[in-house]
């Protein structure tokens, strides 16, 4: 024990360093900045939280769509004669109620956005060339906007006395 004490008293934990140190109190070593430290040369953030918002949207809209779509399937394909009863008169009867108008409008928007984001993910996964991705997503967004607008217009302007 006593021999060990003699060693620790005379040497630091670092051990013996060869040569003279270049730096002392009057000549301090240059400060090394911490990684990822923001400086005025750092570009402004170009990415927000879009992907996280999209991920969350898929789950939230998914839960709502389970209710809306399964209710829709029950009404259209199962209850009261199934698909056989569907016709202009049946649509007119349902869209006479604001409840079903809101139901169908919400279902249209959520399903289209949910599906469009799903297809966006698939395009990003499988289309390897940047140009291919650009064109496929351009087509996807065009078709999505067109379908959402057309569907909304149909619900809002529906006229049971068209004839």
């Amino acid at each position: 024990m006593s021999s060990n004490n003699a060693v620790t008293e005379t040497s630091s934990a670092i051990g013996v360093v060869e040569g003279e140190s270049l730096y002392d109190v009057d000549h301090p070593a240059p400060v090394i900045e911490a990684p990822r430290q923001r400086t005025n040369k750092t570009p402004k953030a170009t990415r927000g939280n879009f992907e996280m918002a999209a991920w969350l949207f898929m789950r939230l809209s998914g839960v709502v769509l389970v209710v809306l779509v399964i209710g829709h399937l029950l009404i259209q394909l199962v209850l009261d004669g199934g698909v056989s009863k569907i016709g202009f008169a049946f649509v007119a009867g349902r869209w006479a109620s604001p409840f079903w108008q809101v139901w169908d409008l919400l279902m249209l928007w959520l399903a289209m956005l949910h599906g469009a984001n799903g297809l966006r993910t698939i395009i990003n996964d499988y289309a390897e060339r940047a140009n291919t991705r650009l064109w496929l997503k351009g087509l996807l967004y065009t078709a999505t906007v067109f379908t959402i607008l057309l569907g909304s217009l149909v619900i809002f302007t529906f006229d049971p006395n068209i004839r």
Partner: peptide, 14 residues
């Protein structure tokens, strides 16, 4: 959505 949009064309078309 396209087939449903036919309600804006005519009852017969739908």
């Amino acid at each position: 959505v396209l087939d449903t949009a036919l309600v804006r064309v005519s009852p017969e078309a739908y």
